[in-house]
Design a binder for these strands. Structure first.
Lengths: 339, 339
DNA sequence: GGTAAAAATCGCAGCGCTACGATAGCTAGC
DNA sequence: GCTAGCTATCGTAGCGCTGCGATTTTTACC
């Protein structure tokens, strides 16, 4: 059995050069700008590469050029279809342009964000994508000393560090509220994942509440202890209605919470929307198929990914920021039978 | 306006050394094994680091040491709670040991896997985590020339490249089948996401079918065109029952599909489980709260992450593989009222 | 107080590549 | 046939760190 061979990456550019009978510089040039080497050598080099199974050493390249093809992306959690859909789109667009995503999870913890930013910045990244506007003092000072392009995504309406791509959560809440008022509901509740974990749910709540109250309605708030959990949601709804039997409509901070509410209504025999109207946020796939189909807000998950990629690439290509470096992609209310 | 400052990472180890009045080597040693430098200098170095806001250059370090703290992880999609929960756990465990995850998405495309493996290997990673056993010839040859530790996860029962952490999908299907047979169901159907996208769903189907047929039952198969989609699921179920009115139980390739089935039953007024029994796979949070609560298989999402991290770290620490380098974590059937 | 051993520090030679100026090879034009 | 003006290739000097052997300082003990 082979005892620990040299290293996992053995063939170097020099060996390729030797086999192809050119200088290492020519191989390097071929790798970076193939059309600048003559067809004859290009072919020889390529066949040497194939024969040796050469893989360039990204670290050496990055060090020498003091640029990297890394783009750091920091999200609260990848276990959430909101961010994961954005990540997937972002990844697709950036990878096709030769970039590599370095993904970090804060798990909704500000100090972890700081640590992640340090860790990502140590790669000398070409760009950095953060979620939202909330960053610790230390994170900010880390970023202040760098000229790495930064995009803050998934929120809008506050001054950003550099570029911003998102939408207003406050406006999303308002949109649902206006719809409910239009349907004649005044006595409402907002059931939410915990605001500590998810500040943006808090903004949606504020938008909802301000609009309902401005029209003379009332909003009762209930927060889950942590992430969306259908069992806890059911319990919370039960208590809520026991204490406030007059409530006519529930706005939920996301579709999973709304699903929990709908199941509980079904269990209790409360007809939707006649006894209780329900709206979600996220417009996930299943919302169209619940019984009755669920009214929900569609956030621009994929569009965010697309535009973040676009802005970043514009900046990296020519150092400029398109005039709309601050982008509100808006949301759309999808009205179905649950309200 | 400052015209493009030097680079986003300016302060070097040498500058820290100068300010702390020690040699660069000592700073390097301090960064790597702090307890080997005297407390007096350690303190001076640390304060210089703080004052200058020094961030080590990961690429330079990686090049010099020809090791990296990168671990590549390649999954079909992060937009799926199965893999994202594993990723989150894996990330937490590996990061706390100083590793950095490089995540790649194949989007269920074999050629993309190949490209991702190339891209990850060019980072000279400390380890590589793949999903499943299915890899293209080229991918295999890329991996054969390297001595990077590899873990294949989320499946079990075939010979792996190196280490394996997962469970048998075939056995999962069998488990559901045995349960259904125990309940007296013989005329069944399997509704699934497309096997092209998800080979493992195909294995669950085979396990289910073999067991049902061995007991003299029948299984009708329906595949969705792509990923789980509740609307399409409803349509498929309608057709299925129209053509096979005798069907008593449906096994679904995952919980989202099962949810679609349950909604359609509700819409059609078919009582669950009396007219139709339904089981899912994944035991997602909402399964406990559907009406009626859904029977589902619980895969070891987080455990996979934990054990992958453990095996990888054992190998990286002392070059050994724990004797159980091939790990079947098993699954558990959670029986609820839907069957 | 002197010395050997141990601990702390330092200096230097790369890691594998890129950038850039220098050189060689070619093409056209007269 | 010679040269200007290209284009294609090459040589060299780092990028910022680590690893290791050499050197200095400290510790321990007679």
């Amino acid at each position: 059995m082979a005892r620990r061979r040299r290293s996992s990456q053995r063939v170097t550019m020099g060996e390729v050069a030797q086999l192809a009978d050119v200088s290492p510089s020519t191989v390097s040039l071929y790798m970076r700008r193939p059309d600048e080497v003559s067809p004859r050598r290009a072919e020889k080099i390529q066949s040497a590469i194939d024969r040796l199974g050469y893989l360039p050493n990204t670290m050496a390249g990055g060090l020498a050029s003091s640029r990297s093809n890394v783009i750091g992306v920091i999200v609260p959690t990848i276990t959430n279809s909101f961010f994961s859909a954005t990540l997937e789109t972002l990844e697709r667009h950036l990878r096709s342009a030769g970039y590599q995503l370095l993904i970090g999870n804060t798990e909704f913890d500000e100090s972890r964000e700081e640590e992640l930013i340090r860790s990502v910045m140590s790669w000398n990244p070409a760009g950095l994508v953060l979620t939202g506007f909330l960053h610790s003092r230390k994170s900010l000072s880390l970023l202040a000393n760098s000229d790495t392009p930064i995009v803050e995504m998934w929120d809008y309406g506050r001054p950003g560090l550099d570029m911003v791509v998102g939408f207003s959560h406050h406006a999303s809440g308002r949109l649902v509220a206006e719809h409910m008022l239009g349907r004649g509901y005044r006595r409402t509740a907002f059931i939410s994942t915990n605001f500590q974990r998810d500040v943006r749910a808090g903004d949606r709540y504020l938008g909802f509440r301000e609009t309902i109250e401005a029209a003379g309605g009332r909003v009762v708030l209930r927060q889950l202890s942590g992430r969306s959990d259908t069992a806890e949601t059911g319990r919370l709804l039960g208590e809520l209605i026991a204490e406030n039997p007059g409530i006519e409509a529930i706005c939920c901070s996301n579709d999973m919470v709304a699903l929990g509410v709908m199941f509980e209504c079904q269990r209790q025999g409360w007809p939707i929307p006649d006894r209780l109207a329900v709206a979600g946020f996220g417009n996930q796939d299943f919302t169209a198929s619940t019984v009755p189909p669920m009214t929900s807000v569609e956030p621009p998950r994929q569009e965010i990914g697309r535009h973040v990629a676009r802005l970043l690439m514009a900046r990296l290509r020519d150092g400029t920021t398109p005039q709309e470096g601050n982008l509100d992609l808006g949301v759309e209310l999808v009205v179905r039978e649950s309200t």
